[in-house]
């Protein structure tokens, strides 16, 4: 791990915390357990895109609409984080990462520390070609879903009420 990436991580953790997003930083082989600790059943998920990081038992993939509707927790991968905004990029995938991270009350994202970039220009440098070449789609998500339309700030307007992150090296 380089000093620069650690600095970016610390900033990311601090900014994400301002939005109520708690991070758990663990070695890859402890990620599954860390995810399990953050999961309230019933839970749905999408396969994590990295070797050596698996979903806990009880987090079902390939969800049905009924399972999505009934799930409390959703677990998906985040492929990028922006340190100074506390944001993560949640790619939409054919495995259903978008609905899995959206229809639940608790969203748990899993992120690699090496994917934390310092700022928005660096984020777009990383994403640009993925949009052009892979026709990528995704959400730059910062904290939980929120609205102030009903006269005061409320979390969980249409999306998750709480967001947690598990960060592996």
């Amino acid at each position: 791990m380089t000093a620069a990436s650690s600095e970016a991580y610390d900033q990311f953790a601090a900014t994400a915390a301002e939005y109520g997003v708690e991070l758990t930083r663990v070695p890859a082989d402890e990620a599954t357990e860390a995810i399990a600790d953050l999961t309230e059943d019933p839970a749905v998920g999408t396969p994590l895109p990295w070797d050596g990081v698996g979903l806990p038992e009880g987090v079902s993939t390939d969800p049905t609409p009924a399972a999505l509707d009934g799930a409390v927790t959703g677990v998906t991968g985040a492929t990028l984080a922006v340190a100074d905004y506390g944001s993560v990029f949640l790619p939409g995938t054919p495995a259903g990462a978008e609905p899995v991270s959206l229809f639940v009350d608790r969203h748990v994202f899993v992120l690699r520390e090496r994917d934390v970039v310092p700022d928005m220009p660096a984020a777009f440098d990383r994403l640009g070609d993925r949009f052009r070449e892979e026709r990528a789609s995704g959400i730059l998500a910062t904290g939980p879903s929120a609205t102030a339309d009903m006269g005061a700030l409320v979390q969980g307007a249409h999306g998750p009420k709480a967001v947690y992150g598990v960060v592996v090296p």
Binding site: T64, P65, Y85, P94, P99, R135, S137, L140, T142, P144
Partner: peptide, 27 residues
Amino acid sequence: ITSYISLLTPPVQSPTVDFDDPDTPIT
């Protein structure tokens, strides 16, 4: 920043969610 900045290159590759067919996996 707002909670969600959607960056979509449609038609998106996410599966649709057909609630009229609640028991078939979306994938």
